[in-house]
Design a binder for these strands. Structure first.
Lengths: 336, 336
DNA sequence: CTGAAAGCGCTTACAG
DNA sequence: CTGAAAGCGCTTACAG
């Protein structure tokens, strides 16, 4: 690879001058500029970003910290948003490989050694020591779906509570009075916000909150089906079910149909996420659309703002969601 | 951030000595080593990988070039394998953000400027100019699912032909004689290999190859359904269908059921990929399992070998696949 | 308008 | 065993 020295020598100028044309400094004569650019072309010279970063104390890279696999649909779409926001930004995305074989491994040290300028974090439990290091550090950070703020750390999430309230309201307006809720694992803030949305949603409709109508699962198809099975065994099974993932919703639908009932004629089901599955598999799922792509985009926009502007305060963003009514919700039949 | 100079000063030694303990050189007295390590600890010193890379002319990063979105299940699982192979390897993964706003943007220049040491490529058409640059360059490259080799470039793919042959054979052994094939878009090498597998599979069973039994779709649910619709309109509709994606298979099943027929009693369907959907949605899909995760792992193992060993020849790897028999294939009923 | 020099944070012969 | 010096490929005051 040709270096700036090769170009300088070939063009008969100093490296300082080459650097100046590289960086569009005005104090270079047209003649010199042309000459240098010619040589650059001819030598296929490409400035070394790493060397430049060393002197400018920058790296033009942002990191991602993900504990959830890439195969998770949320992660996949989040990354798609992140990637899109990064195009033309001048920043590249780096996934830091953890080194579990090193007992002293620390995510934040890794960021430092790589000069990563900012990081997007998703799916890391609050208890993880890296989180604490991160929020007390001066490394710009955007958390996704975790309500953590720090010195230079903000977060972005969906309006989880409102989303579930909308689902409950939708079922109520269709005429449902027995509305159950299949929650994701309780603990993380989004699960709590959503549960609160269920309770508030019922209250808004003057419906009682019954613990027998609250089921918890891990967002999966199988546990969604299992939760539904328990609900169907109740003396008064629900006629409407609000789920916190599309997969759990599909599990519930599977179970409802296995019991000889129909969706939506006998039981209405609402999902959450509006993943690929919701639109493709049958019946098309009524679900909450999260703007995951947009969350990805904004997380990067905020991160870059935090990086490039020390006065930019860590933002807290709630992204709106919407109810997408498809084929799995309808007015309850009288038969049940 | 403390630098090596800070450590040297604090420990009362030269930077050369600090560097030596950092790199486990033997020619340092125990006493000095201890002292230096103490100071490192106390200053939370973290060597700057970028600076080290500048002198060693390395970056310990590998890049990925993907044109397919992260939401594609194959991509997601491939990345999961890549990520896994990278843990503890010392290499980090970089996704290079393209700069379409720069008319001179070139992927390979970007790699060079970032000092990326090797790259994994998936889903890029053969015609893309970056491909040509890449295979003629000395940048170690592993192509996934594209049969390209170059100076330092190898590839890895599934045994596509054999996979489809297995599917055909499976149906034949169940008693099917009317076996249709819903291909993915023809052109790319994997589609051609698979089509060859269909033809060869029929030949092995002494079945005729009928063009009316060949349908082409884009791997999606909707086009899979549309292709199936056409097959069902034939005078002699098939009793068995081999698809080249799980999604297309689910589309086909949807269409079969919409026609009042049952799977597998009336028509058997085989998918391809063994994605998440195949195991989760009902009926559980009989499909070809591609070891995508393993392809991800091996692509990185080969890439690192290419990087670290100039004598290592660019490999060509065919990863075995297997037929997973589930609920969508059975012996044909006589009624059809 | 141009370039010599110092420096970013490291490593590595080499001399002592 | 230790350290001064040169160098990796750049940028940026500063002097001329």
């Amino acid at each position: 690879m040709a270096s700036i020295h090769d170009v300088a020598k070939e063009a008969g100028v100093s490296v300082a001058t080459v650097s100046k044309v590289l960086n569009d400094y005005p104090d270079v004569s047209d003649k010199t500029r042309k000459k240098v650019n010619m040589v650059i072309e001819q030598l296929h010279y490409q400035p070394n970003v790493v060397a430049r970063g060393l002197v400018k104390k920058r790296s033009w890279t942002v990191g991602v910290l993900l504990t959830v696999p890439f195969t998770n649909p949320f992660v996949a779409e989040l990354l798609e948003g992140i990637k899109t926001a990064l195009e033309n930004s001048g920043y590249d995305l780096v996934r830091l490989s953890t080194r579990f074989d090193d007992p002293n491994y620390s995510f934040i040290k890794h960021c430092r050694s790589r000069n990563v300028e900012g990081v997007v974090v998703f799916g890391v439990e609050r208890e993880n020591p890296s989180i604490d290091e991160l929020i007390h550090s001066d490394i710009p950070t955007m958390f996704v779906d975790t309500d953590i703020v720090g010195k230079r750390a903000g977060y972005i999430t969906t309006d989880n509570q409102n989303a579930i309230q909308m689902s409950v309201k939708h079922l109520y307006e269709l005429g449902h009075h027995k509305i159950a809720y299949i929650s994701g694992t309780l603990g993380p803030s989004i699960a709590n916000m959503r549960l609160e949305g269920y309770r508030q949603g019922l209250k808004n409709c003057n419906l009682p909150y019954l613990t027998s109508y609250l089921e918890v699962c891990d967002y999966s198809f199988d546990e969604g089906a299992a939760a539904m099975r328990r609900l169907l065994q109740l003396k008064e099974p629900p006629t409407g079910v609000v789920c916190t993932s599309d997969l759990a919703a599909f599990g519930a639908i599977y179970e409802i149909e296995r019991h000889g009932l129909r969706v939506p004629e006998d039981v209405s089901v609402v999902g959450f996420d509006n993943t690929y599955h919701a639109q493709v598999f049958k019946p098309n799922l009524t679900t909450i659309n999260q703007n995951i792509f947009s969350i990805g985009i904004k997380s990067i926009e905020c991160l870059i703002a935090l990086i490039e502007n020390p006065d930019f305060s860590p933002p807290v963003i709630t992204e709106p969601s919407e109810l997408i009514v498809r084929q799995t919700t309808a007015s309850p039949s009288v038969s049940i």
